[in-house]
Structure formats: structure tokens, C-alpha cells
């Protein structure tokens, strides 16, 4: 699709691409809601130590006698447990803020690393072609024919448990998506005139690929990366729930949910329920943003 398919708006006022995308994005109320929710969750995660009523992992601040209190119960030290407490007497609201911090950072960190690996592999495949391309794409195809959970479990079984290993598993699961996305975008872009022009200027291949080709492959990558953050968060939560994810010293939302599982059967729903809601809110808000980005960044859908 040629560049002329871009919408022609008020030709007198020059608009930056970013501003145009932002204007398009916020034209949709559902996406705006998703963005606002996501911003709130990220803020809560970032400032968890400041906004939490207590530090749930400071043993001096928690009281075992306050264990398993229902939502709204009064704390022995004054104050209210708005979302109840877990078996250790931790305030669930604070535990969720801290859990959000861990879940989101693991999701984002693994996505960034996977993105870097996937982009390099995908660009190398598209640019070099031949054997390198065949090899990379064969590995990608084989990997993508197995579900992510299975690959992650194999890796955890192989590597053992721990934060670094969970991130490694999430990276391994994700990189193939980026490699495939960036390759297909690069295959289209590399045939365009501006790449030819850059070649005529005798720019180094590295400069053409990194400076000219990559920026033009970004839109589909951004969309895939957004959705993949949500997938990584969900996968990490699943691994943690199965007892194969993050260690107990770094309780992500998945671990909080797993922790409440045994109490669920005796009707103490809040220990699992509220962390699950926080997890759900994170995933849904990211997906709403990703869905809208897909529409906004797709030149084919622009009227």
C-alpha cells in the first residue's frame, strides 16, 4: 500500500505522526478507557510503596492474628483492610499493589529482551536471505507450532526455578513472534525506493537496516509487543500459580492467587479473587490498547 493512502487532514497545519496517532487513538472511547485503566495500574505498580496502606513484606507491620479477615474488617492497629487479609495477616490491597509491580515488571522486561532478540533475528533473516533466513524461519515455525505454556514448562523443567529463569522462559516463548513480524514487514519494506536510495548513497548495511529499515517496520511490532506484554503477564501468572514461577520472596499476582486457592474452598474467596481481578484488569487494559493500536497503525484501514 503506497504512502499516499495516509489520511489527508487539514493540509495547512503540519501534524507529527505521533500526534496524529494519538488523536486517532483517543477517538475511541473504549480504547481511551483501556489506556486510562492501564495508566492507573502502572502508576499503582510504580508507586506501590507510597500508596500501599502497609508494606506487606515487612514482618514488623503485619500481625498473624489479623489473618484471613474478610474485606472491610478493622485492623488491630487501626485502619481498615478494604480487601481483607491473607493467611499471614497481610493487607490484600497492599499485597496486590506490590504484586502488580512484580507482574508488570516481569512482563515488560521479558518483552523488551525478546523484542531485541526477535528484531535482530528477523531483520537478519529478511536482509541476508538464503540459509540464514531458512534456518531462522524454520526454528520460528517449529517453535510456534507448540503452545507457549508447553515451551515455558519445558524450559522451567530444564532450567529450574527462579526469577531469571522465568524471564528466560518468557523471552524464549516470545521472540519468535517478533522475528516473524519484523521479517514479514522488512521483506515488504526492503523493496521500496527509499531503501534503494539509501543503497545508492553507499550507506553501510548496518546503517540502512538500523536507521532506515527498522523504523519503518515498527508499527506492526508495536502492536505485537503490546499484546505480548499481556500474554507474558498471563503466562507468568500461570507458571506462578502452578508453583513453577517466581519465588515466594517475590509474590506476583499469580502467586497471590495460588496462595488463596486453598482458602477458596472454605468460602474465603477474597485472597484469590481480588488479585485475579487485578490480573484481569491488567490483561484486558493492555489488550484494549493493543487492539486500538492495531487499527490506528494499520495503513490499510485508514480512510
Amino acid at each position: 500500500m503506497p504512502a499516499s493512502a495516509a489520511p489527508v487532514r487539514d493540509p495547512g497545519v503540519p501534524t507529527s505522526p505521533l500526534r496524529r496517532v494519538a488523536a486517532d487513538f483517543f477517538a475511541d472511547p473504549v480504547a481511551t478507557f483501556g489506556f486510562a485503566l492501564l495508566a492507573l495500574l502502572v502508576a499503582l505498580a510504580l508507586f506501590a510503596p507510597l500508596v500501599s496502606p502497609q508494606n506487606p513484606y515487612d514482618l514488623a507491620q503485619i500481625d498473624v492474628l489479623d489473618g484471613r479477615l474478610p474485606p472491610g474488617a478493622a485492623a488491630a492497629t487501626g485502619g481498615t483492610y478494604w480487601l481483607g487479609t491473607d493467611d499471614q495477616g497481610r493487607d490484600m490491597l497492599s499485597a496486590i499493589f506490590y504484586g502488580l509491580r512484580i507482574s508488570l515488571s516481569v512482563g515488560v522486561a521479558s518483552t523488551i529482551v525478546a523484542l531485541a532478540i526477535g528484531v535482530v533475528a528477523g531483520l537478519a533473516a529478511a536482509w541476508a536471505g538464503g540459509r540464514i533466513e531458512t534456518l531462522v524461519m524454520r526454528v520460528v515455525d517449529i517453535q510456534l507450532s507448540f503452545p507457549a505454556i508447553l515451551i515455558a514448562l519445558i524450559l522451567i523443567a530444564v532450567l529450574g526455578q527462579g526469577t531469571g529463569k522465568v524471564v528466560a522462559a518468557l523471552v524464549t516463548v516470545q521472540w519468535a513472534y517478533y522475528a516473524r513480524t519484523v521479517r514479514s514487514a522488512a521483506l515488504v519494506e526492503r523493496r521500496k525506493e527509499y531503501i534503494e536510495a539509501a543503497r545508492c548513497l553507499a550507506l553501510s548495511p548496518l546503517r540502512i537496516v538500523a536507521g532506515h529499515l527498522l523504523p519503518n517496520c515498527l508499527p506492526p511490532l508495536i502492536v505485537v509487543a503490546t499484546v505480548q506484554v499481556a500474554a507474558a503477564i498471563a503466562l507468568e501468572a500461570t507458571l506462578s500459580f502452578l508453583g513453577l514461577g517466581l519465588p515466594i520472596t517475590e509474590p506476583s499476582l499469580g502467586l497471590l492467587i495460588a496462595n488463596g486457592y486453598q482458602y477458596l474452598l472454605s468460602g474465603k474467596y477474597w485472597i484469590s479473587f481480588f488479585p485475579g481481578l487485578a490480573l484481569l484488569a491488567s490483561i484486558v487494559s493492555i489488550n484494549l490498547v493493543g487492539d486500538r493500536l492495531r487499527d490506528v497503525l494499520n495503513p490499510r484501514l485508514q480512510r
Partner: peptide
């Protein structure tokens, strides 16, 4: 929603 909900949490809610 079916895509977004983590399977294990839906399972817990079904049990609940």
C-alpha cells in the same frame, strides 16, 4: 473476554 481471562483464574472462579 475469553481470550483475556487467564485459564487458571477462570477455573478458580468456576469452583467458587
Amino acid at each position: 473476554l475469553g481470550f483475556s481471562l487467564p485459564t487458571f483464574w477462570v477455573g478458580l472462579m468456576l469452583i467458587m
